[in-house]
Design a protein around this nucleic acid. Structure first.
Length: 313
DNA sequence: AAGAACAACAACCGCCTTAGG
DNA sequence: ACCTAAGGCGGTTGTTGTTCT
């Protein structure tokens, strides 16, 4: 645990703040306990009153923030998974800096955490590329290099897990498969992200939120050449809402990006799906099918995996 | 080994929206 | 209709830990 979380850090605050008796800065273990216990008994909300009643010398705002960003039981700790990173990139391309909105699609992750991730990782990447973080150029780089890299990570993770499964299932089967090459996106990727039965008409909900005030350009879709959803899928949305669905939709709809020949979908494919690290926990509702009437993926504007494979990504 | 630079992230700030009086 | 307080959100800052030189 960081020292700052234990109240070790020193900050200089104005005398008026000290006079008011309100504490600021890092929370102590005692304060955390007080807040947690109080909420356990009385629930969240009415934060100013809560702060007083709980005996905390903190503002309501501070209590709320501490609870939401740190103490709440379902907060997920640790590094963001490639799937989560992928989803953040996707959603940010659609919604811009709407962190809380993005966080709603990543259960257990807070808007603060996502915001920090964006600032520390994504913007850093932009700086290294010497381009503006929200520029079309950077978003293009994200689309063409970063996302495929994440997809590859996911695939490798899946590959490892399926190898482990194979090992445990049958020692007799010594068929050694080479790991996914760096030159192409592995063919099982689409199966990893989308079960074969639902691949035909996969699309995301990322065109939703008509009313939202998106400031950043949407690089992952354009306004032209939209794809109509297939009726049978609309009526029968069996595809699980996976974090990679939006990606999947592009992969599928963009045509022959992948060579699926020779890939044993029945065994490896479904196995990969079953053991996929992709978690099917995207919050309430089937967000994939939320907004069928909205803009869908542009077939011409999908990722340039062919280009990537040529450039060795 | 020491200092600098960088990374990570908790916490605060200010603004906006909303609900209630 | 107006005012006010509370809550929510995005931006920013400050501190500590880690890595690099």
């Amino acid at each position: 645990m960081r020292a700052s979380m234990l109240g070790v850090t020193k900050r200089i605050y104005s005398s008026s703040e000290e006079e008011s008796g309100l504490r600021r800065g890092p929370w102590t273990l005692q304060e955390d306990t007080l807040l947690t216990r109080y909420i356990a008994r009385h629930g969240e909300g009415r934060w100013n009153m809560l702060a007083k009643c709980a005996g905390l010398k903190r503002t309501g705002k501070s209590c709320r923030l501490r609870w939401l960003n740190y103490l709440k039981p379902d907060i997920k700790r640790g590094n963001l998974t490639p799937q989560e990173q992928l989803l953040i990139l996707e959603l940010h391309s659609k919604w811009g800096n709407r962190w809380s909105k993005i966080a709603q699609h990543l259960p257990g992750r807070t808007d603060n955490e996502i915001k920090n991730y964006w600032r520390t990782k994504v913007q850093k990447e932009a700086r290294q590329l010497n381009i503006e973080a929200n520029s079309e150029k950077f978003l293009d780089a994200v689309r063409n290099f970063w996302i495929p890299r994440l997809l590859q990570k996911m695939e490798q993770a899946s590959y490892s897990s399926s190898l482990a499964t194979l090992d445990s299932q049958s020692q007799a089967d010594h068929g050694v498969r080479s790991p996914p090459s760096n030159s192409t996106v592995p063919s099982s990727l689409s199966t990893l992200l989308c079960p074969p039965e639902s691949q035909s008409a996969h699309y995301s909900n990322l065109g939703s939120e008509k009313s939202s005030s998106v400031t950043s350009p949407n690089v992952l879709s354009t306004n032209s050449n939209t794809i109509s959803p297939q009726p049978e899928t609309l009526e029968n949305p069996t595809c699980s809402p996976l974090p990679g669905d939006a990606i999947c939709s592009n992969l599928i709809l963009s045509g022959s990006c992948y060579d699926l020949d020779g890939f044993d979908q029945a065994s490896a494919g479904m196995g990969a799906y079953d053991n996929s690290p992709v978690e099917c926990q995207m919050g309430e509702g089937n967000w994939v099918f939320d907004s069928m009437e909205d803009t869908l993926w542009d077939m011409d504007d999908t990722w340039h995996f062919r280009d990537l494979s040529e450039t060795g990504i």
